[in-house]
Simulated scan of single mutants.
Amino acid sequence: MKQRKIPLRKCVVSGDMKPKKEMIRIVRSKEGDVAIDPTGKMPGRGAYISIEPKVVQKAWDKQILNRHLEADLTDDFYQELLDYVSHQKARQELFGNDK
């Protein structure tokens, strides 16, 4: 059986290329609203970030997502992202990489 191609994405913080399933997409809509996109299918400009709490913390400290998405992100959004990533990381460790 032919092996399927695994789509890769680049983390905007670390610059690492990883499979799309190991990343989280952050999206900015035309209206300027920024949201976490767990499905990866929301319309708008997207930026991928690794499912690692320390990577999210680095993005928060250096305001990296603000520059990539050209939006002003609040500390509340970064805290929500950090909580989401921590939860997803724990799920991966418990159940493996399959969602």
Rank of each mutant, 00 (worst) to 15 (best):
E70S: 05
M23K: 11
S14T: 15
V12S: 04
Q57V: 05
D16T: 11
D83E: 13
V12Q: 03
L8Q: 08
R45D: 00
V56W: 13
Q63D: 10
D98M: 09
R9Q: 08
S14R: 08
K30T: 05
R9C: 03
I51F: 11
Y48L: 01
Q92F: 15
G15Q: 06
K99E: 09
H68D: 00
N66E: 14
N97L: 11
E52Y: 12
K41Q: 00
D98N: 10
S86C: 05
E31C: 00
K10R: 15
Y78M: 02
M1W: 13
D16Q: 15
A90Q: 15
H68A: 01
I49H: 08
T74N: 06
M17D: 13
G96T: 05
K54C: 02
K89L: 11
A47H: 06
M42K: 04
V85D: 08
V34D: 06
G15Y: 12
Y78G: 01
S50P: 07
E31H: 02
I36Y: 12
S50N: 13
R28M: 03
K20V: 06
A35S: 15
Q79T: 14
L94T: 14
K54V: 08
K30V: 03
I36S: 03
D75Q: 13
V12G: 02
V56L: 06
D72M: 09
D98S: 10
P53M: 10
D16G: 01
I26Q: 04
P43I: 00
Y78D: 01
K20M: 02
Q92A: 09
S14Y: 11
M1E: 13
V55N: 05
I24C: 08
Y84M: 04
F95A: 08
E22S: 08
K62M: 11
D76R: 11
K20I: 07
T74M: 08
K5N: 14
V13F: 13
V56R: 07
M17I: 07
Y78K: 02
L8A: 01
E70H: 10
L69Q: 01
A71C: 06
I6G: 03
P38Y: 10
P19Q: 07
C11I: 09
D76Q: 12
L82E: 10
P19M: 08
Y48N: 01
K41S: 00
R91D: 09
Q3H: 10
I51V: 15
G15N: 06
K21A: 09
K89D: 15
P53Q: 11
Q3D: 10
A90Y: 15
I24S: 02
V85P: 10
Q88S: 04
F95H: 13
I36W: 12
A59Q: 02
V12L: 06
G15I: 07
H87K: 14
D83P: 04
R25L: 00
G40T: 00
V34C: 08
E31F: 04
I26G: 01
Y78P: 02
L94P: 06
G96N: 04
G15K: 07
G32A: 06
H68N: 04
Q92W: 14
K18C: 03
V27E: 01
S29E: 10
V34N: 07
D75E: 15
E70K: 12
Q57E: 15
D16M: 11
E52W: 13
K5W: 14
C11F: 14
E70V: 04
L94D: 13
Q79E: 15
I6M: 09
D37C: 04
G96I: 05
M17S: 12
G96W: 12
E31Q: 03
K2S: 11
L73S: 05
